[in-house]
């Protein structure tokens, strides 16, 4: 694994998503992009130029977008539904439940600009409930890749997997974290660095921050494991149980409300199998004030130093 050293180049994961989708689209005529007018924000102009017939734009109509995609899947197509995550998951939740999850259709839901990526645009555009909403539904794996490498790998996995999934992508720049030859495996977390005093579990944009926090803690004599847990459902129970047994404390970090997301999913496993002190960093059940995504993450205690502080607090709780 690459440990971040100094200021690294940052990448928008949407580029990796769209490059991969275009490659997959070139190899398979059945792959479609379905959008709610969001051609630009989903970076799909290249896909549209290459495969004009296969970019299905239903206009600003998210419920119809998901329903149409279920119908396209019934007709043998492999639709990637690309839309701002807040509108895709919030507006069309019943279609996701009935037409995709319950009907078990081969629809790939791609939530673009998830979390607080829209920053200053405000809480209407933040998608910090989507893990909770989609995780509650059977038949839809929930995946939040952490960098452009994992994004590309997850998109390839999604295309090859017969069935629905929810890919939660950001637009906040993140450095490369995973190796170039990384292969995404659903329900499998990756240990990015090992340690025995504390485990930090994160995904999406937070893994970069978690690694920085772990490095600071290590400089102060603590040994910290960092688990990248892109797959929120199904969740890697074994990795969580091992982390609890090996390090005795678990801190989760996510760009999501602390109610029902990654932290909750990890806590469910901890409570059932391996009770150890645990804390959850995330948005603490409020609508965010005005600010950029990175500002808001810092504001909610998820700067590297904020994570460090919470880590110290948690370690003190260890018996």
């Amino acid at each position: 694994m690459k440990a971040p050293t100094g200021p690294a180049k940052l990448y928008d994961c949407r580029d990796a998503f769209i490059d991969t989708l275009e490659d997959l689209g070139a190899a398979n005529n059945d792959i479609l992009a379905v959008v709610n007018d969001s051609v630009g924000s989903s970076k799909l102009t290249g896909f549209r130029d290459k495969f004009p017939e296969r970019l299905i734009n239903v206009g600003i109509a998210e419920q119809n977008m998901v329903g149409v995609s279920a119908g396209l899947a019934n007709g043998g197509k492999i639709p990637f539904v690309c839309a701002a995550s807040s509108f895709l998951t919030g507006r069309a939740l019943e279609q996701i439940k009935a037409d995709v999850a319950y009907s078990e259709t081969n629809v790939k839901l791609v939530g673009i600009s998830s979390g607080m990526a829209y920053g200053e645009l405000g809480a209407t555009h933040h998608s910090i409930e989507d893990f909770a909403w989609i995780r509650a539904l059977p038949n839809i794996p929930v995946v939040a890749p952490t960098d452009r490498i994992e994004t590309a790998a997850a998109v390839k996995w999604a295309a090859a997997h017969y069935g629905a999934c929810f890919l939660r992508l950001s637009r906040i720049g993140v450095p490369d974290i995973l190796p170039d030859d990384y292969i995404f495996k659903l329900g499998r977390a990756n240990i990015l660095r090992d340690g025995n005093d504390l485990t930090i579990i994160s995904n999406g944009t937070l893994t970069n921050r978690a690694l920085k926090a772990a490095a600071i803690l290590e400089d102060n004599g603590l040994s910290v494991r960092v688990l990248n847990m892109a797959s929120v459902r199904p969740i890697d129970e074994n990795a969580i149980i091992e982390a609890a047994n090996d390090t005795g404390a678990i801190l989760t970090c996510e760009e999501h409300t602390i109610f029902g997301g990654l932290g909750s999913a990890v806590a469910e496993v901890v409570v059932d199998h391996c009770p150890v002190p645990m804390e959850r960093l995330g948005v603490p059940g409020v609508f965010a004030p005005t600010g950029s995504a990175n500002f808001l993450l810092d504001e909610f205690g998820m700067s590297p130093n904020g994570i460090v502080e919470r880590g110290y607090k948690l370690i003190k709780r260890k018996v």
């Binding site: 299905i56 419920q63 119809n64 998901v66 329903g67 149409v68 995609s69 279920a70 119908g71 396209l72 899947a73 019934n74 007709g75 043998g76 197509k77 639709p79 019943e94 279609q95 009935a98 037409d99 319950y102 009907s103 259709t105």
Partner: peptide, 19 residues
């Protein structure tokens, strides 16, 4: 397709016809 909640069938049918 699994119907029940109303207003779902026509969007799905549009997708089928489009396929």
């Amino acid at each position: 397709t699994n119907t029940g909640p109303l207003g779902h069938g026509l969007p799905i049918a549009v997708g089928m016809a489009k396929a």
